[in-house]
């Protein structure tokens, strides 16, 4: 058996990573909950946002955390426009069609990244990357802690926004009953685009929080898409609480999987959880029904 101290450190690291996954998953679950579409392009759009953060740093010297409002705003506009121009227009009919459409988006985005940015792994060397915080037996990198706190604050902020603001209330009404929402005078089409935009804005935030400790390549999107779907399915499609709990669970699973099974086999935990949840409890931990 492994030393409990190592396991403790593994759990803490997993929770820190999970904190950022929550942000990615909240975006996905929001898009599903409101629009009833499965956004397969989620990982690719995260990858794109990560490149945006990288180039802001490389070309303009903007620190990833300082870039936060800029990237969130940019990602919102990108998502809004993408929905208006493409996804919203053709999202009629079978749900596989939307899956295929967003698959098309992800193929184009992934390969455009490969074409323009090259296949190299890019990282950001922030000056505080080598600073560690001692917590019990674990040494935790400072940027991971900053990102964790920022992610929790942003999720809480989004939660309050969805609960209190007029837009948030209208979006929740739309998620529950779209025809009813239209009847009471809510601009449904615009709110769909806004919801998609908010979902993508979450990715923009996640990208800023990931880059100080993570790397980006054109294939990063594919690495994240299964993680994001697993979290959302585990928590229950469309459930915010589920996305939060699922994010932490998956972060810890990934970290402990790597610890016990090694770098290669450790990744299997996420795919297995995904399969088992879909087979035995497709509504997830907090989901209503499909």
């Amino acid at each position: 058996m492994l030393d409990p101290a190592i396991i403790f450190a593994g759990v803490l690291n997993g929770l820190l990573a999970g904190g950022i996954y929550v942000l990615v998953a909240v975006g996905l679950t929001l898009i599903y909950g409101v629009l009833h579409i499965i956004n397969f392009a989620h990982g690719s759009l995260l990858m794109l946002a990560m490149y945006a953060v990288f180039f802001l740093w490389r070309l303009l010297g903007i620190d990833p955390y300082v870039a936060l409002p800029l990237v969130i705003g940019g990602a919102f506009i990108f998502g809004f426009v993408l929905y208006r121009l493409l996804i919203g227009r053709f999202s009629h009919g079978r749900d596989e069609n939307i899956l295929l459409l967003t698959l098309g988006v992800s193929i184009v985005v992934d390969n455009a990244a490969l074409l323009f940015f090259g296949g190299d792994t890019e990282t950001i060397a922030v000056p505080y990357a080598g600073t560690f915080v001692e917590l019990g037996a674990a040494f935790l990198p400072l940027p991971k802690i900053i990102s964790f706190v920022a992610s929790v604050l942003l999720c809480a902020g989004l939660g309050i926004y969805m609960a209190k603001s007029d837009t948030g209330k209208a979006i929740r009404a739309l998620a529950k009953e779209r025809h009813g929402a239209r009847l009471v005078g809510i601009d449904v089409d615009k709110l769909f685009a806004v919801s998609y935009g908010i979902g993508i804005a979450c990715l923009g935030a996640a990208a800023c929080l990931l880059m100080p400790t993570f790397y980006v390549t054109p294939s990063s999107g594919y690495a994240f898409v299964l993680v994001a779907f697993t979290i959302v399915v585990l928590g229950g499609m469309g459930s915010f609480t589920g996305a939060a709990v699922g994010g932490f669970l998956i972060g810890v699973t990934e970290s402990l999987g790597g610890l016990f099974l090694g770098e290669q086999l450790g990744q299997i935990g996420i795919s297995l959880i995904f399969i088992l949840i879909l087979l035995f409890k497709p509504t997830g931990l907090f989901g209503g029904g499909r």
Binding site: D95, L278, P282
Partner: peptide, 19 residues
Amino acid sequence: RAGLRGSYFALITLAFAEV
């Protein structure tokens, strides 16, 4: 048997391939 259809079936096949 689990009743998966549409997008859910598509995603589970992706996960099987990954496993």
